[in-house]
Design a protein around this nucleic acid. Structure first.
Lengths: 227, 227
DNA sequence: GACATAACCGGACTGTAGTCCAGAACGGTC
DNA sequence: GACCGTTCTGGACTACAGTCCGGTTATGTC
């Protein structure tokens, strides 16, 4: 539970009521600690790439990085934390686009204000692609410890974003609760299983179908279907 | 992976294309094996009730049952398998109602043929209640081993059922893929997290909102909403 | 540059899931 | 009731995640 809070990582924190960027705590990090952090991340990335995320033990990573196990766990908490650190960079990109990038993902558009329905659909699709692209790593970050998915800051970020869009698209509904439902099929565990059984395109299409049914196609909003 | 297939357990198997009841393999079970199975299940149930599912180790169960660890794993495969065996009874009840019980859950109605939309909503609600009632145990059965949820026969049963109803309610869509999406927010891991953060009623209401948006209210089918 | 203090380091240690296999127990046969 | 192939048993064994703490090293101060 005691986590690394010193390093220049974990880019975003979520303000209670709105999405806010916030560089994490003052970059006070001892030089040896910094050296080790880099060594660990490099070693982990290499071992994961070589042997597959599932077959790499924390001992092996510590050994490859030339670092003790204690150091490894002190900095990253657990296996999930290590995965989060490795994903941080790429995740940040997506987060930045969502916060301040061009439509449909972000809020920036030349004409009028962006449509929350389209933004939601675009977000779900983009996020699903992100998870699929780093499936094993994300899966580890979500399942290494029970309940990990819902504890990490990133999930709260995605949840908040989803809830804000839902609140705009479906006023009157319980956006916070609905957002969890929308995010459920985007868990790495779920996508992993579905993709293995069917294939990615069908899974993505089905998710889009469900989201579209929930919020509708676009502003013209003619319900969703008419049987 | 090598599983117990002898005992009178695991009530249903799923035929490739339709829902079929099928008592499992011939009840050929050696008397010592039967004795031990009962002892293990009884010991597990008691320890779980006393100390909480999370805090009971397989060693402890084996010891309490007066049985070796090897026996425990041979019969139940892993922790998830043990949970499945314990849930079997209650799950079977729900399955039976769905297969041959009264509407809205089952297909039996006095008037005309049952409406798949209502049946789907009823099923989702009933299943969610079932999971919530045995949250820790179901959670263990789904998360003890990675991907466990999607391997156990029960999931395939629920998935098949959901897919059949979806195929009737939304012809033209990819029912198999959509069924996975519908089941995603019903995972124990997900419900556990959401219930801890909000509460059960909001979670249930949100799930119902989403399902209703997907299939509509009833046969009268006037789309879902019109902004 | 010596000192004090806080932060960090690493490997021995613990607890648990899951494997393995030599031998015991079963149950059918003559 | 003795024999035999099959199935089951149980505890020693491995591998891994995660904890703990005495010793070490960086950094700010005089």
């Amino acid at each position: 539970m005691s986590f690394d809070t010193t390093g220049p990582r974990s880019g975003y924190a979520i303000h209670e009521t709105s999405l806010v960027t916030l560089r994490s705590s003052p970059p006070k990090e001892r030089s040896d600690a910094a050296r080790n952090r880099v060594a660990v991340l490099a070693a982990a990335a290499e071992l994961f790439a070589r042997d597959g995320v599932e077959h790499v033990s924390m001992d092996a990573i510590a050994a490859a990085a030339g670092v003790g196990k204690g150091t490894l766990f002190r900095r990253f908490g657990d296996k999930a934390g290590l995965a989060v650190a490795l994903l941080d960079e790429r995740e940040r990109e997506l987060q930045e686009t969502i916060l301040s990038g061009p439509a449909p993902l972000g809020p920036v558009t030349s004409t009028d204000k962006p449509d929350p329905r389209e933004r939601l659909r675009a977000f779900v699709d983009a996020y699903a692609h992100y998870v699929l692209a780093h499936l094993d790593l994300v899966r580890m970050s979500e399942t290494a410890a029970p309940g990990a998915r819902y504890r990490i800051g990133a999930y709260r970020f995605w949840h908040r974003h989803t809830a804000l869009l839902l609140a705009a698209a479906r006023p009157g509904d319980d956006a916070d609760a609905l957002a969890h439902v929308v995010l459920a099929p985007l868990s790495a565990e779920h996508l992993h299983a579905v993709v293995a059984e069917q294939d990615a395109d069908r899974a993505l299409a089905a998710i889009d179908t469900a989201v579209t049914a929930l919020v509708g196609e676009d502003v013209g909003g003619k319900g969703t279907r008419g049987s």
